[in-house]
């Protein structure tokens, strides 16, 4: 992009120049004509459904018969029912795996390599690490279902190193199914986070590290006072992407465990689907959908706030 705009030099025009103002009615009309198609698509298939979601959430409705106004009862159910609370808790537990593992490992790699991954090695790394981003999540789910199966690679490895007692059907295990699902998500997001952080660290001025070393900084200090602050934006991006992926997960869980055993791996996305289309509790499903949306918003907002580039 920079090449394309190269003919316009960054001139020294004072920044006080006010934006052009041409507010004639005709100009406004033109603007609306350009925006209208997108606005209509967005309104028709996002805003209206969202409004309907909210409306349904106030109803008791099986999706076929007559709906009855139900007030906020559905919301009370979502926030008090033990199962639903556990389901919401599951989503937040997934955040731990989806977010901490990729960001932690990514940071480790980035601060160790601290430089460009140039040449063939760099290309190969990028290509391979991005593969999980390119394939459908469903495929990742199937691949890992096989990895975690009782005769799968995970157990095979454990047996090979003499930990046969640890071998189990991971995705059917009440304790281990959720962490296993978390590992799948971590695997999908690991490459993206690593590449983002590795790229981000190359933008930190190398002389900062040299200066710090002259000041007697230990590697830990360098990491704490230079790398982390320098990567604040990239870390924010990683956390945002991975947290949304965890809270709104559906594909992986649907394929690998279908929420089981019991409801140990059920997440809100799956529960919405099940409530609305299997149990015909459209009102409750919609209330859960609204709660999920709000949860994503209030989880992301502070991340955005802390990691925004403060100028």
């Amino acid at each position: 992009m920079s090449e394309n705009t190269a003919s316009v030099p960054g001139n020294q025009r004072p920044p006080v120049r006010l934006p052009p103002s041409r507010g004639s009615r005709k100009a406004t009309m033109t603007a609306w004509l350009f925006i209208a198609p997108a606005a209509i698509a967005y309104a028709g298939f996002v805003l209206v459904p969202l409004g309907m979601s909210f409306y349904y959430s106030l109803l008791r409705w099986d999706g076929i018969g007559k709906a009855r106004f139900h007030g906020l009862t559905n919301y009370v159910t979502v926030l008090t029912d033990a199962d639903l609370l556990q389901i919401i808790g599951n989503a937040f537990q997934l955040v731990l795996y989806f977010t901490l593992i990729p960001v932690g490992l990514g940071l480790a790699v980035a601060s160790a390599i601290r430089g460009h991954m140039a040449g063939r090695f760099g290309t190969a790394t990028r290509t391979i690490l991005f593969l999980p981003q390119v394939i459908p999540l469903v495929a990742a789910g199937i691949a890992w279902s096989w990895m975690f199966a009782s005769t799968g690679l995970v157990n095979q490895t454990l047996k090979a190193v003499g930990l046969s007692s640890w071998a189990r059907g991971w995705l059917g295990d009440f304790t281990w199914a959720l962490p296993a699902v978390g590992i799948i998500g971590a695997w999908v997001l690991l490459g993206l986070c690593t590449m983002l952080l590795v790229t981000g660290i190359t933008k930190i001025d190398a002389s900062l590290y040299e200066a710090a070393r002259l000041d007697g900084a230990r590697p830990w200090h360098e990491f704490r006072y230079i790398t982390l602050p320098g990567l604040r934006q990239e870390i924010g991006v990683c956390i945002t992407v991975t947290v949304i992926a965890a809270l709104a997960s559906f594909d992986i869980v649907y394929i690998s465990t279908q929420g089981g055993p019991g409801i140990t791996t059920t997440v809100p996305g799956l529960e919405i689907y099940r409530l609305a289309f299997a149990h015909r509790q459209v009102g409750l499903a919609s209330a859960l959908a609204i709660v999920l949306m709000v949860l994503v918003l209030i989880t992301i907002a502070p991340v955005q706030w802390f990691t925004r580039d403060k100028k």
Partner: peptide
Amino acid sequence: FVFGLTLPFEAVITPLYYE
């Protein structure tokens, strides 16, 4: 428009079905 950036598809899937 930006408000929709973090919207999980699951939040609108039920009404989308009826729509």
